[in-house]
Design a binder for these strands. Structure first.
Lengths: 131, 131
DNA sequence: CATTACTATTAGATCATGTCTAATAGAAAG
DNA sequence: CTTTCTATTAGACATGATCTAATAGTAATG
């Protein structure tokens, strides 16, 4: 009902809706790890990425995305038979996944241009911001 | 257009899921237009923004977002009584909307840093590494 | 007058993504 | 035996983007 009470600290302007980097980041991690990795390992690598610094990537979403990307033909997976312990599913990239990563880079470069354009427009009228 | 297996040209790596700029862009447009604007007018201004160049902003989503942002206290609106023609709803910013815009700028600057970090990692490792 | 284009808004549906809780289960360490 | 770490899955819900469709007045053209 009354959303008016919502504080700025919980507002979307804090950037909570922005992260859209998981797909290209997964592809990057797997490109740099030829032997493949299971979900848990991918998650650990992702923690080094700056966009994961404010909070670890959500593992539920990550595992689900891995399955989806496999269904899309970007990844392949195999059960790891030699391991003891719970079944791990080892993911690695397909050729199509590599093409996809290349395309992602172009898209993200374009995206950065759009972002710069917006940031430029946002600051252009700052003189009226007094207290 | 048929429902074939999704080609690279329709893959998400083209960047179709990236746009998350509508909220700060609306705030920017309204900041630069003191008298307020109705949805249709906002949409026309948005077309100048680079992130809208590849396609016009979706008007359904825009109108819905305007209502939502009003409910959140970022915008206020009033019916335009003097006009002939269909009822226009004139939106303008609240004080809170201005604070929100300021915060958005910080968030987007941080976001750009994350993007740069990811882009750097994407290009960094195209050779083989010893295990 | 009829048609078309433009202005202006709303509703419903679906999809992509993010995030929360919860559950399961083996292994290693104390 | 209990805790912690490793490893995965499921369900639910929220946000946001985008598609179709519908409505309705106004203005210009023929």
């Amino acid at each position: 009902m009354s959303n008016r009470k919502r504080q700025l600290s919980r507002c979307i302007c804090t950037g909570t809706s922005l992260d859209r980097m998981l797909r290209p980041a997964i592809l990057t991690v797997l490109r740099d790890c030829r032997r493949g990795l299971h979900g848990y390992g991918i998650e650990q690598r992702l923690e080094e990425f700056q966009f994961c610094r404010r909070s670890s990537p959500d593992f539920t979403g990550l595992y689900r995305l891995l399955k989806k990307m496999e269904a899309e033909g970007l990844l392949r997976s195999a059960k790891n038979p030699s391991d003891t312990g719970p079944a791990k599913r080892i993911y690695s990239m397909t050729v199509r996944g590599k093409q996809c990563l290349t395309r992602w880079r172009i898209s993200l470069l374009n995206y950065r241009d759009m972002l710069d354009d917006l940031l430029d427009r946002m600051k252009s009228n700052e003189f009226e911001e007094g207290q």
